[in-house]
Write a protein that binds this DNA or RNA. Structure first.
Length: 264
DNA sequence: TTCCATGTTCCGCA
DNA sequence: TTGCGGAACATGGA
């Protein structure tokens, strides 16, 4: 489930495995996932390089190269993840990009449904601007005033507004449900109708939920029992009031919420 | 077999 | 004109 917390974990994973190692060769299995760069150009750019640093903005991961100073950009769609391995037995099933290092290890970008994206950019800032991405949900500069300002100016349903990457980068379907549950706000509430108190609560819960998820390594099994995410499938019950969780469509996406605890 | 899924983008309508 | 909301996209599992 690659939303902000998941991508943060991918960033930590890549940083602790694949940095500073020489890239011997690159295999591109699904060239249609490359955006704005040809397979030939990407291979040529990566070959002989070393990754030296990583950054994350919302759901995008940026990996800097030592020589060219360019950045590899990875977006994970609904099903993407990374795997660093040596044994072919550990090779994932839907590799779209495979980077071979001179130490014999490989870094696979696996994306079963191919809704992710592989790109190259001169700088993360340039990419973020071109994509018109909003501020990262966890960046310190994104304070309560900017959060309120952003959400007051749209009449979209609050769940849709939280998921709009041009407003705030990093929140997807699953964590928007969690944030709204923790804040006690109904997902279909019009964003512009939220009062100051509701917005203040929503802001602090946005930060808290995302940080808590990162601390849990974005693993649903490690999330607090007070979270709704573990009860998000099947016929779950609310961890606060024990009533049944409702499943509805909001802006075309599946939303789970507690009708008792989340009022419009 | 049909439906549904955590992602973004595109198009029609208000 | 702008922005919202549903459909489409690619693929596979229930």
């Amino acid at each position: 489930m690659p939303e902000l917390p998941d991508v943060e974990i991918f960033k930590q994973y890549l940083s602790s495995t694949a940095l500073h190692k020489k890239i011997r060769s690159v295999d591109i299995h699904s060239a249609e996932m490359l955006k704005g760069v040809t397979a030939q150009k990407l291979k040529k750019t990566l070959k002989g390089e070393r990754f030296i640093s990583t950054r994350r903005h919302g759901k995008h991961l940026f990996v800097e190269m030592a020589e060219s100073k360019k950045w590899l950009v990875l977006h994970f769609g609904m099903t993407g993840f990374l795997k660093y391995f040596k044994n072919t037995a550990r090779e994932p099933a839907h590799e779209r990009l495979l980077i071979h290092f001179s130490n014999g290890y490989r870094l696979a970008y696996d994306c079963q449904r191919k809704l992710g994206e592989i790109a190259l950019t001169d700088a993360p800032e340039v990419f973020i601007q071109e994509k018109e991405l909003g501020p990262d949900a966890l960046e310190p500069d994104f304070n309560v005033d900017r959060f309120k300002e952003t959400l007051k100016k749209t009449r979209a349903m609050i769940k849709s507004a939280l998921m709009n990457q041009k407003f705030i980068a990093g929140i997807g379907n699953v964590y928007s449900d969690e944030i709204l549950f923790q804040a006690g706000i109904h997902p279909e509430t019009r964003s512009s109708e939220l009062d100051e108190d509701a917005l203040t609560t929503l802001y602090s819960q946005t930060k808290r939920v995302l940080r808590t998820a990162i601390d849990a390594r974005a693993d649903p099994d490690h999330l607090p029992s007070t979270f709704i995410i573990p009860h998000r499938h099947g016929h779950g019950t609310c961890p606060k009031c024990k009533n049944n969780i409702e499943k509805i469509k909001v802006g075309g996406r599946t939303a789970y919420y507690c009708p008792q605890c989340q009022k419009g």
